[in-house]
Design a protein around this nucleic acid. Structure first.
Length: 282
DNA sequence: CATCAGGCGAGAC
DNA sequence: GTCTCGCCTGAT
């Protein structure tokens, strides 16, 4: 068990911000009672990079249920714990009330460093879709095509399916995972990766624009999805995905354009504050 | 019943 | 290159 203190970190906000679909709040038994309102317990579990992790938070105190070595080599980077998000928020233009409010509201968000293949599939699934259903689809894919594993605690879970595993599934089988018209995209993309038509190891080494262009060769990956993959897997924080929420905010709040020049290299981080703020309050 | 959810591909021009 | 259209499906 690792315990640390960290400011500008909220596991709840990271979960709600919809960048990771395998991070979930651990539901307490008896919570469904409408009579007794228990205090919000900030306990979450995460399945990533083949591992199962439980995380607890009280204020700025965090506990990670893992060994020091795993924390240092994996989760510290995964949760971007070395980045100073206070500095990012402090750099916001004092006259930009909207952005300041958005960043203050979501100040516990982190830009995670997630698995590339998992983000490709997840954000293909995300198009014209809602977070609840995206989670359900991803969960089904893992249950049906991912390897079953057991954590040290004995807790059983499913790893994210490999490209080969999904490439081996027929279009019809994928369709049965509630993917709708995205089944064809997942199938064709899985085949492209499994056959090496697009080399993910090469993509990992590319800069932002090269990686984005390469990812867009995949079926079902357009500009928006490619930007999400660059941001959430490759940690290209300059990537700025424009979806319906961001598009709406840009029109209403930035009629003369978002100030990309002022926030060179980290507009994507600010995008997440805006997305989350509009998602929860818009 | 219509509309929308973190868009994209295909075809027309 | 830009524009339009249709699309699985569940929630509201």
């Amino acid at each position: 068990m690792i315990t640390i203190t960290k400011d500008n970190f909220s596991i709840k906000q990271i979960c709600e911000s919809g960048q990771c679909f395998r991070l979930d709040r651990i539901k307490m038994p008896g919570e469904q009672s409408n009579v007794v309102k228990m205090e919000e317990a900030e306990r979450y579990n995460l399945i990533a990079f083949g591992k199962y992790l439980e995380i607890a938070q009280e204020g700025n105190r965090l506990s990670f249920d893992c060994k020091q070595e795993e924390f240092d080599s994996l989760w510290k980077g995964y949760f971007d714990l070395e980045e100073d998000y206070g500095r990012i928020i402090a750099s916001i233009d004092g006259e930009d009330d909207y952005l300041f409010k958005a960043a203050s509201y979501g100040s516990g968000i982190r830009i995670l460093r997630q698995d590339l293949w998992e983000m490709i599939v997840s954000f293909i699934v995300s198009q014209q879709n809602n977070i609840k259903r995206i989670r359900k689809c991803i969960s089904l894919l893992c249950r049906r095509y991912g390897e079953e594993k057991a954590a040290a605690s004995g807790k059983r879970y499913y790893d994210f399916p490999t490209a080969k595993a999904l490439a081996g599934a027929s279009f019809e089988e994928l369709y049965a995972c509630n993917l709708g018209y995205r089944s064809r995209y997942i199938h064709e993309t899985a085949v492209s990766i499994a056959e090496g038509a697009v080399d993910l190891e090469a993509v990992r080494k590319m800069d932002y624009l090269a990686a984005k262009a390469e990812l867009m060769k995949l079926c079902g990956v357009g500009i928006k999805v490619a930007e999400c993959i660059c941001l959430f897997a490759l940690h290209k924080t300059e990537a700025f995905p424009v979806d319906t929420h961001i598009s709406k905010v840009l029109t209403a709040q930035y009629p003369s354009g978002f100030p990309f020049d002022r926030y060179k290299g980290y507009a994507g981080t600010l995008q997440q504050y805006i997305f989350y703020y509009d998602l929860m309050n818009g």
